[in-house]
Simulated scan of single mutants.
Amino acid sequence: MDRAELIKELHEIAAGMTKAPLREVSGEGDASMVEQYGFSSLDALEYLLILEEKFDVVFEDEELTEETLFSIEGLATYILGQKAPDSASLA
């Protein structure tokens, strides 16, 4: 999955959780999940759990930053970063 597909899927999952309309995905700027989908802290936690299961990643407490927690771009970077070591470790 490339970055653009991942970002689109992250938006679709968030919109589905909140019944909010799917936001137009643009490469410019990145509003927070709270601003885009009205996520509460519990929504954000549930969203992370869904993402962990769907993408087979683990969000380690010490690695979570505000950017990762509240930004689709940050989440995409984190998920892709979690996937990259798998292929690198085989070399």
Rank of each mutant, 00 (worst) to 15 (best):
L75A: 01
V25T: 11
F39S: 01
E67R: 14
L69H: 02
F59P: 00
L75N: 01
L64V: 13
S71M: 01
G81C: 06
A84P: 00
A14N: 05
K83C: 04
L42F: 15
R3T: 10
S32G: 13
V25W: 05
P21A: 01
R23H: 06
A76V: 03
L45M: 15
M1L: 12
G74P: 03
E63N: 07
A20Y: 10
L10M: 06
Q82F: 06
Y47T: 02
M1N: 10
F55E: 06
G81K: 11
S32W: 03
K54T: 11
Y47S: 01
F59G: 02
R23K: 15
S41V: 06
E60C: 06
Y78V: 07
G29R: 12
I7Y: 02
E66A: 09
L69D: 03
D61E: 14
T77N: 14
L42W: 13
G38D: 04
A88L: 13
D56R: 15
Q36K: 12
D30G: 13
G27L: 07
D56L: 09
E46R: 07
F70Y: 15
K19G: 14
I79M: 03
R3A: 12
E66N: 13
A88T: 07
G27C: 05
D86W: 12
F70H: 14
K19F: 08
L80A: 02
A20F: 10
E35N: 11
E66W: 06
G29H: 11
S89P: 05
D61A: 13
Y37K: 02
V57P: 00
G29M: 11
E52V: 03
E53G: 08
A31D: 15
E5A: 14
S87P: 04
R23W: 03
Q36R: 11
I7Q: 08
D86P: 01
E5R: 04
G38S: 11
D30S: 08
T68R: 00
A88N: 06
K54W: 05
E35R: 10
K19C: 08
A91I: 00
S41Y: 07
M33S: 15
G74I: 03
V25Q: 09
A15M: 02
T18N: 06
A91D: 01
T68S: 02
A4I: 09
F70C: 12
D2K: 03
L49D: 10
V57L: 00
G38Q: 08
G29C: 09
L22Y: 10
K8T: 13
S71T: 01
E5K: 10
D2W: 01
M33G: 10
D30E: 10
R3H: 10
A20V: 13
E67V: 10
A31N: 14
A76G: 06
V58I: 14
L48R: 09
E67F: 15
E53T: 08
A76H: 04
F39W: 04
R3G: 08
A84H: 06
E52C: 05
P85A: 04
T77H: 12
G74A: 11
D61R: 12
T77V: 12
I7S: 12
G74L: 12
A31Y: 14
L48N: 06
L48H: 03
K8L: 11
F70P: 08
G81L: 05
S41I: 08
D56I: 09
K83P: 02
R3V: 07
A20W: 09
Q82D: 14
K83Q: 07
R3I: 08
D2V: 01
S41R: 12
Y37E: 01
A31C: 12
L22V: 14
E46F: 00
T65Q: 05
H11F: 13
Y37I: 01
